[in-house]
Design a protein around this nucleic acid. Structure first.
Lengths: 204, 204
DNA sequence: GTTGTTCAGTATCGAACGGTACAGAAATCG
DNA sequence: CGATTTCTGTACCGTTCGATACTGAACAAC
């Protein structure tokens, strides 16, 4: 009822503190973000965080909600485009920009919020990224050979095409980890293959 | 020099133990897999693991190497296909199957090895997956409307197309988190857009 | 059989984790 | 002015983490 506060007023702004928490979770993931990391970035003490947000998991859920509202507004805007093509292109372009904003952590909180980049596992993430990149390079070499052999159009960017294939593969991995059935992954592959040059069976 | 062992022989097989470790890391990620989880699955004690593999990070690197050799053999096989199209299709098909093998953890160790699914954060992963799925559903609704409006071919599977778009988005997120530059992401979008029905600008 | 070397198992280390009890400070109400 | 209510800050809780001494047991060499 009454908007009057009774006791000592809060010494910090909860929304500002939440924004700082978003940054930390985004950069370090849920488990990788310790309470010390969070409260230090938020500029408040541990009991203040617990009084304001309940516990770490509640804080994370609030952070994701705020992220979806603020940092993914471009997605809702894209849906308002007049044509399906424009919807998809606008979304993917804005998404690419959002994933690489210089003033924000790289990537997407919804994807790597489950990561654990805290402490020692920074090296782990780098090691895994390098492993994936090695596969991408092998594929690029193979596709480059295909260009030289006339199997792909001469203006084909083999490295970009290899990266696209790996993106589809890794996106499917994210979906599979989330429980997507095999049929869904193959349906995605059906569509993804339409982006390849020449298409069809082949040697022809 | 001498292949003769000197002291008490090892009571377990290191390769078998490593295979078990792969399973645990694959399912729970690096940080999510505790030494207790690992040694229990490997059937050995903690000091035996340290004697055989050095430490947790070395064990993980060995596990990833073994994973790349055993569980990603299909990728090298795909590179041997005669045409570029066959290379890509064979890879993506085998990849989709590998990501959803019923007798193995879902997803890809190289992608979610950085995850932390241990203990409480199973709920976190589910929560994030549900968040992403909500966006996918919104996009599917929008594309479904486009089909109804004649903006997309009548035989278009709006849900599958939406899933494809999200796969590209999430794959790009993985790349961005690994440090890929903005231009690389847009080059991927360039290619991905070619898979869309009708293509081009649109309302036409 | 004795000696030397290696493995197995218990018990424990210090550090970091998420979470909280408690005392003092700052505000409004009567 | 007390009295009451709420926030801040320190100091700490029990638990779990990765990693290790240390004691005995098991094997080969001599």
């Amino acid at each position: 009822m009454s908007t009057v506060v009774r006791g000592r007023p809060r010494g910090f702004d909860a929304d500002t503190a939440l924004d700082r928490a978003v940054e930390v979770f985004w950069r370090q993931g849920y488990e990788g973000a310790s309470l010390s990391d969070l409260t230090e970035a938020m500029g408040i003490n541990r009991p203040s965080m617990y009084a304001a947000f309940g516990n770490k998991e509640e804080l994370f859920r609030r952070a994701v909600a705020r992220y979806a509202e603020a940092d993914m507004a471009y997605a809702r805007a894209a849906l308002a485009q007049p044509t399906a093509y424009a919807v998809v292109e606008t979304f993917l372009r804005a998404n690419a920009d959002a994933l690489t904003r210089p003033d924000r952590p790289s990537g997407c909180l919804s994807v790597q919020g489950g990561l654990a980049e805290g402490g020692d596992s920074g090296r782990i993430a780098s090691f895994l990224a390098e492993s994936r990149l090695a596969g991408e390079r092998e594929l690029a070499n193979r596709l480059s050979r295909a260009v030289a052999e006339g199997d792909l159009p001469t203006d084909t960017d083999a490295a970009a095409l290899a990266r696209y294939v790996m993106v589809v593969s890794e996106g499917n991995a994210v979906h599979a980890a989330a429980g997507a059935p095999r049929s869904a992954l193959h349906a995605t592959v059906d569509i993804a293959l339409r982006a390849l040059p020449v298409g069809g069976e082949g040697t022809e």
